[in-house]
Design a protein around this nucleic acid. Structure first.
Length: 277
DNA sequence: CGGCAAACCTGCGAGC
DNA sequence: TGCTCGCAGGTTTGCC
C-alpha cells in the first residue's frame, strides 16, 4: 500500500485517535510480523500515554510518555483502522490492537505481513537502525537540488531505481517515482549520475508537488490503502502515468505511442518516451 | 562496492 | 464453478 502520502494520511488519522490518550489495553495476536515484536511489547505499552504521532519516511512514530517510541511500518498491505473496540472479534490479519481510555481501538491489520512494529528506547529514535540510514524528507527544506545531485553523483543505476533507494531521498515508492519523473520530464532509464543541475532543479519540485497533492487527496487507494477512518484516498484518479500504459499522458499531443510500461529491477515503471528524456 | 533478482506472505483478478 | 498464474504500493538478502 503505502508510500509517503499514504503513511502521512494514516498518521493524521491516528493522531486524532491516539494523541493525549492512554493505552489501557494492548494485544498482539501473533509472535511476529516481518520481524518479531520486542520482548513484552504489549506490557511495555500498556498504561502509557501517547504524546505524539509522527512520521519519518514510511515509518509511523508513536511517542510514549516514558520516552520510548513505537516504530511501525505498513509494508505493502498494512492498515491502521480506528474502531470502537466492540465491533466483534478481530479478523485473521488483525495483528495488534491498541485500546485507548477514550473507548476507541486502533487495529493494525496486515495480510501480507511485510509490515513491522518495534520499540525504540528513550533517546534512541534518531539512531535506530531502521531510521539511521534514511535520506532527507522530500517535503523538508533541506531537500534541495544540490543535496539530491550530490546523492545521485556517481551512481550508474537508473534514476528510477535511485529514487526508490531510501538513502537518496526518503518516502518515495513505485507510484510516486513514476509520477515525479513524468512531471520533471526525465526518462526513468537515464542513469542517476547523468542528471544535470537543471534536471535536479525540475525533479525536486516535481517530487514535492506530487507528494503534496497526493497527501491533500488522502493518498492513493489502489487496493489496500484506507484511512484510519475507513475513507478512501483519491489521488489514483490524478495519476499521469502510473497504471496507464497504452493511454496518452495528460496534455500529450504526440500522434503515436502513449504511456509505456517497462520493468526495472523487477518492478513496473510507467513513462512517456516522448515527453521524458 | 554496486546492481539486480529473489525472497518474504497473502489476496485478487484474469484466463482457461 | 474452480483452478492456476501473474501481479501487487516495500525492504532485505544473497549472488554475480
Amino acid at each position: 500500500m503505502p508510500e509517503l502520502p499514504e503513511v502521512e494520511t494514516v498518521r493524521r488519522g491516528l493522531a486524532l485517535a491516539l494523541e493525549g490518550r492512554k493505552l489501557v489495553r494492548v494485544e498482539t495476536r501473533r509472535a511476529d510480523l516481518r520481524v518479531p515484536f520486542p520482548p513484552r511489547f504489549a506490557e511495555r505499552l500498556t498504561g502509557r500515554r501517547v504524546d505524539d504521532v509522527g512520521r519519518r519516511a514510511k515509518y509511523l512514530t508513536i511517542a510514549l510518555d516514558d520516552g520510548a517510541t513505537v516504530l511501525a511500518h505498513l509494508g505493502m498491505s498494512g492498515r491502521m483502522l480506528i474502531g470502537n473496540g466492540s465491533a466483534g472479534p478481530p479478523g485473521r490479519h488483525d495483528h495488534v490492537l491498541l485500546h485507548t481510555d477514550a473507548g476507541l481501538c486502533v487495529t493494525f491489520c496486515d495480510p501480507r505481513r511485510f509490515g513491522l512494529m518495534v520499540l525504540a528506547e528513550p533517546g534512541g529514535l534518531a539512531e535506530h537502525p531502521l531510521l539511521r540510514g534514511l535520506g532527507p524528507e522530500p517535503l523538508d527544506e533541506d531537500f534541495t537540488p544540490a543535496v539530491l545531485g550530490t546523492a545521485l553523483a556517481g551512481r550508474r543505476t537508473p534514476i528510477k531505481a535511485a529514487l526508490l533507494d531510501q538513502r537518496m531521498v526518503a518516502g518515495l515508492g513505485n507510484i510516486y517515482v513514476s509520477e515525479a519523473l513524468f512531471h520533471a520530464g526525465i526518462s526513468p532509464l537515464r542513469s542517476a549520475a547523468s542528471l544535470s543541475r537543471s534536471d535536479a532543479e525540475r525533479l525536486v519540485p516535481a517530487i514535492r508537488k506530487v507528494l503534496t497533492e497526493a497527501i491533500a487527496a488522502g493518498g492513493s487507494s489502489l487496493r489496500d490503502h484506507v484511512r484510519p477512518s475507513g475513507e478512501l484516498g483519491h489521488f489514483q484518479n490524478s495519476f499521469a502515468v502510473y497504471g496507464r500504459q497504452g493511454e496518452k499522458c495528460p496534455g500529450c499531443t504526440c500522434a503515436t505511442g502513449g504511456v509505456l510500461r517497462i520493468a526495472q529491477a523487477g518492478r513496473s515503471t510507467f513513462y512517456c518516451a516522448k515527453r521524458q528524456r
